[in-house]
Nucleic acid binder design. Structure first.
Lengths: 129, 129
DNA sequence: TCTTTTAATCGCAATATTACGATGAATGAA
DNA sequence: TTCATTCATCGTAATATTGCGATTAAAAGA
């Protein structure tokens, strides 16, 4: 136990979860926002910008690269990073496809009630349970 | 060490990371898709659907509830779950705002090259480095 | 009341993630 | 060649997540 049971899920579900994982850390969000803001390739200054140790940033950059969100180009002793537009839009599209509109007439449960208070908000409706 | 240094980041960055974390597991993706598909409140059957132990599902449901994506309503000995449309659309909007269009003229680094091969793809451009 | 059903919670084990210092590899400059 | 710079990787520690059996709590029904 302890490891995600990927075998239970579809490829699509695992992929989507991995995309979400790539942006599921504030440092990686901050890196992406920085790259967007500077609107160019960025060398080195990412470490100064974020405020984590160089080894830690390097690790986050690797994860972003693995997810396809950024790419790095060697320039002398530096490495320049920028958003990878292709993957950026791809991931955006997949995420927004996941967040579909909720179908018309989708039954919505009543606001949560705790167990001990008056319950039974749901059973009367034929769409429910 | 080991814990995310939330203090280094803005509220917005931490919030966004937490939203991503909520859907950064295939089981939680599967649960949300199931709720969308059935288009109604769902009691109990989530455990059968996903194939993880009841305790595990309950934990995932809790996380989705904490993130605001779903809500639960007590119905006798069961609890019925459904998507919370308000938060669903809110989170969708925040995510899609993050995935902005990449600005016109955004410099893109050349495709990645490894360190030992011919480098220097970036330095010539004034937008870069 | 006693039993069954349902789901939350507890406690634990396994694994993953986060963070960082230290080291190493590649490059450019002196 | 030697040194400094830059960044990836290694090793390790701390913390978080995942998963599940066992237990508990609440409610319905016999």
């Amino acid at each position: 136990m302890g490891a995600t049971k990927s075998g239970l899920f579809t490829q699509q579900q695992n992929d989507l979860a991995n995309m979400a994982k790539a942006i599921a850390h504030p440092a990686r969000i901050a890196i992406l926002q920085f790259l967007l803001r500077t609107n160019a390739c960025v060398c080195g200054s990412i470490v100064d910008e974020i405020g984590l140790a160089q080894a830690t940033i390097s690790q986050h950059l690797k994860e972003l690269k693995t997810a396809g969100l950024i790419q790095g180009t060697v320039d002398g002793t530096s490495v320049c990073y920028c958003i990878n537009p292709t993957s950026w839009y791809q991931i955006r599209d997949i995420l927004s496809a996941f967040f579909t509109d909720i179908p018309e007439g989708h039954y919505r449960c009543s606001p949560e009630v705790t167990r001990s208070s008056e319950a039974k908000n749901c059973a009367a409706d034929e769409n429910c349970c």
